[in-house]
């Protein structure tokens, strides 16, 4: 999955990632961000760009399915 997760030790609850994400990958609960739809992420890295504390972790490896159901 592209969004690996939030580092809560660094997260300052500013909600900027939730605010900017084009794909609605993040959700909010009690003022805290969580990853609601990691597969929807397209690695644009805007969340990492706006995060003031480096708490958003994104992987650019895209383990998407192969055509016609082939898997490696």
């Amino acid at each position: 999955m592209a969004v690996q997760g939030i580092d809560y030790e660094k997260c300052v609850d500013c909600g900027k990632c939730y605010d900017i994400c084009p794909d609605d990958v993040f959700g909010m609960f009690c003022g805290k961000v969580y990853v609601r739809d990691p597969m929807g992420c397209q690695s644009c890295a805007l969340c990492a760009m706006v995060c003031p504390s480096g708490a958003c972790h994104i992987n650019v490896v895209r383990p998407k399915p192969l055509p016609a159901g082939r898997r490696v």
Binding site: C44, A45, A48, M49, C56, H57, I58, V61
Partner: peptide
Amino acid sequence: KANCRRVQVEYGLDPMEEKIPMRRE
């Protein structure tokens, strides 16, 4: 900007001052 920032977060490297190793996998 977004990609450079991501490199800083994931690798702890400055993409303009240090070479970035590509992951083996």
